[in-house]
Amino acid sequence: MTTPALQAHGLGKSFHGVDAVVSLDLAVDAGEVVGFLGPNGAGKSTTLRMLLGLLRPTTGSATVRGHRAGSPEARADVAYVAGDVALWPQLTGAETIELLTSLHGSCDPRYRDELIARFDLDPSRRVRAYSRGNRQKVALIAALSTRAPVLLLDEPTSGLDPLMELVFRECVLEAGSRGQAVLLSSHLLAEVEHLCQRVAMIREGHLVRVADVEELRALADVEYEITGDVGDLAGVAGVSEVTPLVDGVRVRVHGSPGPLLAVLATRPVSALRTREASLEEIFLSFYSPASTS
């Protein structure tokens, strides 16, 4: 059995008696890109900061490639990008990248230069003159050019324009294909859907589900747009919602579509279109007030 690149076991954190994260179990393997989803204040950043050793867990433990989070060995294996990165304003971009990679202890200079070009960063500017997006680029370039085995990314694309977001996606996919483990906290669900094989969802400090994106989709409702005079479908098993359209109906089906398809086989259907739920819809179904109550 191989050691997970990242593992949390019963991880918990309380601040002044208030639970921010409760008994969280999570493992990320080498080469895996895992999305970490949850609304604001759910405990995503707290979890990431415990995995980095910046916060001391109240309960449980976390390891990076078998080493205790925060230990010298673990720090050498992790690179981190914060959501709203704070850097020393008097340093230039090049100096900041040099400092952060030196602190980490490893840097691939060729890859660093390539990233500077790909992210279209002017490294001669001082940090105080950078926009938020450019500061984010500096942190991303520094983290990625370490080629650390584990990347912890906390909303790393906040402030990036869509073009740079595409560059970021390419870089993360490359990292995954090279065998780096990535835990990506993000509110951009399309980004997570595009990059991640698995998704971990956290709510009010509790990890509510860890599943493949496909597995999550299977749990969600599927929408069918049916053209033709198909009559009343409200009573069909699995159909949860029926919306009349000009030339047909839209129905939402939970679970197997078999009963619906059996009924449709007996009716005059001229067209049938299927639309699977996006991760955003799945996310909303998990976190909507109805599901949290």
């Binding site: 910046l54 981190y80 952060l100």
Partner: peptide, 15 residues
């Protein structure tokens, strides 16, 4: 530096 958040990335790597 700690209050400004500048140590987050630095101390994720350095002792």
């Amino acid at each position: 530096d700690r209050l400004a958040g500048r140590l987050d990335v630095a101390l994720s790597a350095a002792s």
